[in-house]
Design a protein around this nucleic acid. Structure first.
Lengths: 330, 330
DNA sequence: CTGAAAGCGCTTACAG
DNA sequence: CTGAAAGCGCTTACAG
């Protein structure tokens, strides 16, 4: 079932059928209706590859999941993000091509770009120094970033406000009487971690002590181990984790060491995964769905030459039983 | 950078360049080397759309995420599954097109099929009566299913052995002295739920009582509410949940009602999400990654006309603190 | 407003 | 073993 057959049945040229589909305003109403009727009756849809070949666009966007272990994306995060991106692209008639590769595999970007498989990329899980960005720049490919990179002011991005999110969490702890606050952060070269670190530092001001910051890889194990390490040398008022999964690991370690969470010590996580509520973990939520929607919108705009603006979306702190509200707090 | 340019530089015809790429055995070794050298130097990759148009294949596989709320796929499940499918397809040079749609939206399948966007589909989250399957059958599209459907013996699938997984869980409970075992299952029209139900029933034999089975939608809320409902009318030895997320909700309800989990009552979940370990929830693990790999392999085989065989993969029960081991148990 | 024609970048029978 | 040619299914300048 091709455009030719439609043309024949509707007794017009293929050009007219194509025009009805792509520039309906250019064709006479009667002709248009006649053609549309045939199209509807036969259920014709133009072949995407033929169209793509002709217009030199694939009308699809790619996302390559970095294969690192223990990344941010073991949480429900990834599923929700992919879902919201695909939904948003779908609405605009674009497709979403998802692939997987080790983070330092740049070949896959070259491939997808040169073979014309996608018109642009959405990058996730970026580091401050990210070879992928330089590579895409070199290729001249369209791309946007979920997250942010140090000093790369020319890269368009959507990000949640990790800085303010963490700052607010710490400020809340300070307000409720906590002074000795440890921080189990993600890898220090992760941009996400950097922003959270800055927020932590800024909120603490004079109380800031770099020795109270530890770095893990967002895994439960690291949360557990780093917490044990902290407890070996100190007995803090509070520990803040750069991810709920790490916080869960930390809570386990704390319990093992006899701490009553929310009484002897306070804990705050990041992400607000569904289970945080259940175990009473206070947490900072990122607007993942919205980030996905905006990312899709942004790459589409970029590709169509529209003006694009990077966006930082607010996070939301939810306090639950894991935080002790001292007498002298409010 | 097209095949034409390569041909010109290598001083051969485009046919020869194409042959070097697609049927290297048909071309003289010297010519081949010469062409390959030019290709490597210029970094040429054949345009996928042009190729696809010519060979009438897109070399990609589609998966449409059903948009239901509270589905199986709020857990980390979805991310892991998509990752493993894409990895597996990638290896075979295929692309993975991910989209989203309400579960009853069949148009998107028609579209992707007729427009030639994908050569086949992987279906997830299937129900016993699933309009998508009938629709794809009607379209004459290639597809396989993750999960299983009642009575559709002609549909190829990969599934984990939900029946045996649940049966083993119940048998363990029986062996450790539990007799009054409730079951909070998923929706009754979900094939996954049906198999778990059968396993539950089979293991209990005479002890089986249909009134002890409740249906939820895999959400934490449903786990919580249905547990409360159970506790209103009974004080069971154990409650088994068809998903860890529901089990977490159930555990919260149990604690609220003053139960000491693992002493007063036993709890087992399904999925073995990362956090299950942390909170001591016993659970049945599905081999999600392997399911993804096999699903990709299977659809590829199906499309290439190879013989395909449905597969059922074993699950694994891990007992943790949430199960009481009574004196008369082993 | 409409049609004939060119061409997007490939692959593959066909002929030699 | 190699090349010239046809053609996959579209879209769009061009001419009328």
């Amino acid at each position: 079932l091709t455009i030719k057959k439609i043309a024949k049945i509707a007794k017009v040229s293929v050009a007219t059928v194509s025009r009805v589909l792509n520039h309906p305003e250019l064709v006479n109403e009667e002709t248009r209706k006649k053609v549309l009727k045939v199209i509807a009756e036969l259920g014709y849809k133009p072949n995407k590859q033929a169209r793509g070949l002709r217009v030199r666009r694939s009308e699809s966007v790619g996302l390559i999941i970095p294969e690192d272990d223990g990344s941010l994306f073991t949480s429900p995060y990834l599923g929700v993000l992919l879902k919201s991106i695909s939904k948003s692209l779908e609405r605009e008639g674009y497709h979403f091509v998802v692939s997987t590769a080790p983070r330092d595999d740049l070949k896959i970007y070259t491939d997808m770009h040169i073979k014309g498989i996608v018109d642009g990329f959405i990058l996730i899980d970026v580091k401050d120094e990210d070879a992928r960005v330089d590579h895409l720049e070199l290729l001249g490919a369209n791309y946007i970033v979920i997250g942010r990179m140090k000093g790369k002011s020319d890269v368009f991005y959507v990000d949640s406000d990790n800085y303010t999110g963490m700052k607010e969490a710490i400020e809340y702890l300070l307000k409720t009487g906590h002074r000795d606050i440890y921080f189990v952060n993600g890898p220090s070269d992760h941009s996400v971690s950097r922003f959270r670190y800055e927020g932590y530092k800024e909120a603490l001001k004079d109380l800031f002590d770099p020795l109270k910051v530890l770095n893990g890889n967002y895994s439960e194990e690291d949360g557990y181990n780093l917490t044990k390490e902290i407890l070996k040398r100190a007995k803090p008022d509070a520990i803040v984790y750069s991810g709920d999964i790490m916080a869960f690991g930390g809570m386990l370690a704390l319990r093992e060491e006899g701490f009553n969470i929310g009484k002897d010590i306070s804990v705050i996580g990041f992400d607000d995964v569904p289970l945080a509520c259940l175990v009473g973990l206070s947490s900072v939520k990122q607007p993942i769905e919205e980030i996905g929607f905006l990312a899709a919108e942004m790459i589409l705009k970029l590709m169509s030459g529209e003006r694009v603006e990077s966006k930082v979306l607010p996070t939301k702190l939810t306090i639950r039983a894991s935080v002790r509200v001292s007498e002298d707090g409010f």
